[in-house]
Nucleic acid binder design. Structure first.
Lengths: 210, 210
DNA sequence: AATTTAATGTAATTTAACTTACAAATTGAA
DNA sequence: TTCAATTTGTAAGTTAAATTACATTAAATT
């Protein structure tokens, strides 16, 4: 039970509260099935204020998607790449990538954005570029650098990066999207990540001459 | 321009026509945005007949999903696996799998089913099992057989199968789901498939002793 | 303290689509 | 040819949710 001390908030605070409430509801029920009365009931404030801030339902949706959707991939960014040999770097990255995917909010978000893609195609493109594509590109750039340094031997770093990420992510997205939570133990995850790195390096690590 | 010779069809014929029309509309606009008047306008017949046959909108949706969704994976089935060494078999399978994914109707279908998963969770599970999961399982079983024959050396065939399928499919599903058609040439496809098989066998093919 | 400004609560309006009702038209059988 | 059954066309009923209107109340300013 929440204590219901009524507060009058200013626009900015109320806006944040509404975004938060909308996020939960959209994640739980999807775009069409969420109605604005519920949002207001959850966030506090009033329908009037909601319409003042966001214009309409679509406005609320767009603001929400762009706000949250572009923050998510922060842990994948370049500056978090560890130093060390490719095996270490890739293993670290893989762990961060899978952790991200396993977050139900992330997968749920991608799901809904995909779902509403027909209605808001520009949003799904933006999110795809900021999200899944971002990870691929970071890996590809890293691989390209390693190729220059002579550590790895990769004809097509972009393709290799995609393969690597796919192996790491597995069916997680599809699972969560279908409402099937993956029931993996830590050991399962470790095995998957190790295998992905292993398969990758088996092909691309520079071997001593045969 | 269609010639509009009005035809009175019996229930079965009309049902097929309605399923066909609904399929197109649902694929194009999603579940919520498709209205039944449009379906009838496209299929011919009448709303009355539609309700007699399917009960309501949900009934139409369920029938459609189950009818088409479970037919799709036919080309992946076991009996189409070629004979020959693993390299050949896997390459063939990979080609069929990717071809399937590249079919816009298939990807579009998965997209919508995912989209409506919150409303009809049983459907998305059924389709996941009949679709994506099916392919994984067929590969896993094949791999297990090869392990028994001593051709390959794979500790965890299920995991290996998933990795393989993921490499083959790549981001295609996500792309199409986000409305980004992949613009691959035949050469791109060939490169991807070859690489997937190569990476897989680099790890699992039984090597002559070092 | 009075006044202005901004946020709130509620209810009316509008819209859109699902669903149902019913009369007209067509087919098939007696 | 006539009659029964089935399909069709149209429109009315129902519901649900987005949007708007307006009076009320709390906060901020003078």
């Amino acid at each position: 039970m929440k204590s219901k001390v009524k507060q009058r908030l200013n626009v900015d605070q109320r806006k944040q509260a509404m975004l938060m409430a909308a996020r939960e509801l959209f994640l739980a029920k999807g775009y069409a099935a969420t109605n604005l009365d519920e949002v207001v009931a959850k966030s506090g404030g009033s329908l009037t204020t909601l319409y003042q801030i966001f214009g309409n339902k679509e406005g609320l949706w767009r603001e929400l998607v762009l706000t949250y959707g572009t923050r998510v991939t922060a842990p994948l960014e370049d500056e978090h790449l560890s130093d060390g040999p490719p095996r270490t770097v890739l293993r670290d990255f893989a762990e961060r990538l899978l952790t991200l995917q396993l977050n139900p909010d992330v997968a749920g978000g991608i799901r809904i954005i995909m779902a509403e893609g027909k209605q808001f195609p520009d949003l799904s493109r933006t999110i795809y570029a900021a999200g899944p594509m971002r990870g691929r590109r970071i890996v590809a750039q890293y691989l390209a650098r390693e190729v220059e340094h002579g550590t790895l031997d990769i004809p097509d770093p972009a393709l290799a990066a995609e393969m690597f990420c796919q192996m790491v992510e597995g069916d997680v997205l599809l699972w969560l999207a279908c409402g099937i939570g993956p029931s993996w133990t830590q050991a399962d995850i470790k095995r998957r990540l190790d295998l992905a790195v292993e398969m990758f390096l088996n092909t691309y690590e520079r071997k001593a001459a045969v």
